[in-house]
């Protein structure tokens, strides 16, 4: 019961990543791609947490912690580069 619901959640997260990838390929400008990259990063945090639940190891959550801390840095650098210069 619980495993079935969590597998359905994982499938929905994978579909979200797939739609963001679609916008990444299709998007007309650099900023669209940056936003798609951001959505893919935030969705990956949830996928990592699900993998950590199915594996039963608490140590996998550290990777999600590093994602949450450092993922915004590259997006900030992209935005500052587009705006006027680093």
């Amino acid at each position: 019961m619980v495993n079935t619901i969590l597998i359905m959640a994982g499938v929905l997260m994978a579909l979200g990543i797939l739609l963001a990838l679609f916008r990444f390929i299709l998007g007309p400008d650099v900023t669209d791609r940056a936003i798609a990259f951001d959505v893919m990063t935030v969705s990956s945090i949830s996928v990592i947490a699900l993998i950590a639940y199915f594996a039963g190891r608490v140590i996998y959550l550290d990777v999600a912690l590093v994602y949450g801390l450092l993922s915004f840095l590259s997006v900030v650098v992209i935005g500052r580069y587009i705006e006027r210069g680093l």
Partner: peptide
């Protein structure tokens, strides 16, 4: 939560 992530992907398209 996964439904909201899917809706975010749908909105971005």
């Amino acid at each position: 939560g996964s439904v909201f992530i899917f809706l975010g992907g749908l909105g971005i398209v």
